[in-house]
């Protein structure tokens, strides 16, 4: 199943502001770019020498922050009532 189809199943209340705070200054030095492979919703994509970050479909697992070898990703909490709301969980 495509990730877009999967995310269509979930309920999001998307905030205007990106809660994934990323400093991309070290991305070019980063050999494996683990954020682009571990993210369960493909929020991190390496495209033309640049890290493209979307946050709308973030399920707030926090894996990206843990795997960043340069400690440049900070997952903050979306503000009150925003972000994903699991109906099952």
């Amino acid at each position: 199943m495509k990730i877009e189809e999967r995310l269509f199943l979930d309920r999001f209340n998307v905030d205007d502001k990106n809660h994934l705070v990323v400093d991309t200054s070290k991305c070019l030095e980063c050999a494996n770019k683990p954020c682009t492979t571990v993210c369960p919703v493909d929020d991190y994509n390496w495209d033309n020498g640049k890290l493209i970050i979307s946050y709308e479909g973030c399920v707030e697992c926090g894996a990206c922050e843990v795997v960043c070898p340069f400690d440049k990703i900070k997952v903050t909490y979306p503000p009150a009532g925003k972000g994903v709301s699991f109906r099952f969980g």
Partner: peptide, 9 residues
């Protein structure tokens, strides 16, 4: 039928 997709540490 898939109803929800989730991830967690």
């Amino acid at each position: 039928k898939a109803k929800e997709y989730s991830a967690h540490l």
